[in-house]
Design a protein around this nucleic acid. Sequence first.
DNA 1: ACAGTTACCTTACAACGTAAGAATTTGTCT
DNA 2: AGACAAATTCTTACGTTGTAAGGTAACTGT
Lengths: 246, 246
Amino acid sequence: MSPRDDSSIVDADAAVVDGKPPPSARIPLDRERILAAAVRFIDENGLLDLTMRKLGAVLGVEAMSLYRYVPGREELLDGVVDTIVSEMYHDEDVINEPRDGWQDFLQRLAHGVRRIALAHPIAFPLIASRPPEAPWLRPPLRNLHWVESFLGGMRSEGFSDSATVAAYRAFTSFLLGHLLLEVSSLGADVGPLDTLDDGGDESPDLASYPLVRRLRGALAEDHSAAEFEESLESLIDRIAQLKKAS
Amino acid sequence: MSPRDDSSIVDADAAVVDGKPPPSARIPLDRERILAAAVRFIDENGLLDLTMRKLGAVLGVEAMSLYRYVPGREELLDGVVDTIVSEMYHDEDVINEPRDGWQDFLQRLAHGVRRIALAHPIAFPLIASRPPEAPWLRPPLRNLHWVESFLGGMRSEGFSDSATVAAYRAFTSFLLGHLLLEVSSLGADVGPLDTLDDGGDESPDLASYPLVRRLRGALAEDHSAAEFEESLESLIDRIAQLKKAS
DNA sequence: ACAGTTACCTTACAACGTAAGAATTTGTCT
DNA sequence: AGACAAATTCTTACGTTGTAAGGTAACTGT
């Protein structure tokens, strides 16, 4: 029994807009479909559950078929990172060059990345933990297009070369820290267990940590959005000083 | 041939301070030795190469012997995280409560965490990517002792509850962002390949990204230390305002 | 209709995490 | 000293993983 016989699986790939599927035609695989399926799989089942065989099954195909389009699992994950970061191309609120000052430009970019992180809370840590292929591709802006856009935007707004570079570094580490913590408080890593909610959120022996115990309610509250705005403001202030100082 | 027969392996575990090894005694395994070996292994060979069998071999033991002290691989990694974070106990520059103001207190703590990150550049991302077991244990401060210390320190310096919590959040995301990027530019993830320096750092098609190309020298420069200091200063200023505003 | 190309499948292997139980070492009591 | 009990480690085994090698089926252009 070939996997193709199970039509209920193939039909899950409903992205074919009914353009031209004369009922017996086979739609060949392609890199995009594979990467899109991988992103969805990670979002739904976690990174650890993503195996070549299971991903194949989702696409109605055996594992080895994927190797015609992707060199291996590691490269597949790189592709997933790229796919996710590239989603920002279709975000209309993110612009390619400043229109109302660099502050607005950076705000839009930062919010764009944040939307991506929130859209893929499980997959986002991948963006952070994959080794960067070049020192100028700092997570989470792992995309030459956006780096170029960032650098160009700042230069065009009167930043010197060195101020631009310093701003880039401050911007990326701000984003990385904030967003990583925000998504990690959202659904965790989904590591080994499939959404572990065994027992309950029973706290361990907080007896010897009275302050943690007293403040644990406040510590569990989620103010990510407001904190993001405030920290971003503060970062922008800092970048403004970089501009002057250069 | 039992692994014990290979004395060259056992002797690699030279941590026995020659206290009392009458030449034929067998030193039993214990959790600490296992975790210490795991940390060293990750630092040297990367996370992906760490398997139960190989870790066993390093300790002169079969894989299954480890399961008497560690429930499984995942928990072993949790233990590794804890071991690394706990190294800060022996850092004399990190103090448990403020002595010269909260600014100094936070500076010491931040530098302590940074030293740990730099001491374990390969293992550090683990600290960031492992799912936190509670919302108040934010990476990279994944240790109840230090969280308690942080909260207590701030409270004792006149911070309100809510300012303390806000400071904690700002502090952790600052550390996470900065240190993660700093170590990632240091030795990368060391993923599948064992220290990949094949070929060269040949850049891809930077032709269509002129600014990245022009600034790539500057972008590759390492100013981590100075940037850390500056950002930390700025963070402390921000926290000072939190104090007043509360 | 037929040959060539492309896309997919089958089979196979080494390495992994780990369950179950056997074998060995160590400690203790006489 | 020897003998039993407890603690520790090893052996074997199973299911799953990534992926190399080569076979088969489906589509293409003639």
